[in-house]
Amino acid sequence: MNNKIKVVVDKDLEDLIPVFLKNRQKEVQALKAAAAAADFEQLRQLGHRMKGVGNSYGFAQVSEFGRQIEEGARSGDRAALDACIASYSEYLSRVEVSNE
């Protein structure tokens, strides 16, 4: 599953994407730390923020992961959260910006 995932980004925002993606990597670390500490409130907040910011930049999948994390945190479903964070991490390693 090493296929790249292409995301089309508005040309005006192109130069913001490297910082955006770097911040998503940091976000994964924060999510993992919060999950390890079973800090559901922190997970909920992080998920909520992902939901807002992802789509705004054109990364619909980031918003979708955010929705799942927010939901998992609300129900306290550790396994679902861990799986989701892993998927998010994997997604980030494959995502690639396309100018199309």
Binding site: D12, N23, V53
Partner: peptide, 15 residues
């Protein structure tokens, strides 16, 4: 408080 969101909004308005 989300720097990514702030940066995005700022860019869209600056444009």
């Amino acid at each position: 408080d989300d720097p990514d969101m702030a940066m995005l909004l700022a860019r869209l308005l600056a444009n």
